[in-house]
């Protein structure tokens, strides 16, 4: 694989992770508004962590000579979020989306980016477990339902 092709693949994977982080930053605003007390504080902490991760990805994409894709003004939610239980489910879904996006980075050829993706998917996988209450065998891969 040529360097240009490898860089293009890396930028595409990084933009995918950035899009997931932007969606998480947006989504946690809704999550936090539906929670209270310690759970709201946890949502605020997670919201800040996603902002930091977004800034890291912005810098990585810029360093490769590309322009980070901007966040959308509004994101469609996967389901209506009208109570605390739905907010917890949304938080878990946001974390699963971020985990999946970082897993995409693991498929690139650059070992440094691979290692980054593999390490970066662990915190959202952990947070998904916290919000969902159960572990999964293959974080980042879609559920088979079987």
């Amino acid at each position: 694989m040529s360097t240009a092709v490898a860089d293009a693949a890396a930028v595409t994977a990084l933009q995918g992770a950035l899009a997931a982080e932007n969606a998480a930053v947006y989504g946690y605003g809704i999550v936090g508004s539906m929670l209270s007390g310690g759970e709201q504080a946890a949502a605020t902490t997670d919201w800040k962590l996603h902002q930091e991760a977004r800034d890291t990805l912005d810098a990585m994409i810029s360093k490769l000579g590309a322009t980070p894709a901007p966040a959308n003004a509004v994101y469609g939610l996967p389901f209506p979020v009208t109570n605390a239980n739905a907010a917890r489910q949304l938080a878990a879904a946001l974390e699963e989306g971020v985990t999946r996006a970082y897993l995409g980075l693991v498929a690139v050829t650059d070992p440094t980016l691979r290692a980054f993706g593999a390490l970066a998917m662990q915190p959202p996988a952990q947070r998904a477990v916290t919000w969902r209450g159960t572990t999964t065998a293959f974080p980042g891969f879609p559920e088979s339902g079987t």
Partner: peptide, 29 residues
């Protein structure tokens, strides 16, 4: 698994990364 994925084929690298993430959640559990 994090070490193993560095030189693996892309599909295997993703499997090792996912298993590593799962095992990291086990540590927390």
């Amino acid at each position: 698994n994090l070490h193993r994925l560095l030189a693996a084929a892309p599909d295997l690298a993703q499997l090792y990364a996912s298993i590593a993430a799962s095992e990291a959640t086990h540590v927390t559990a």
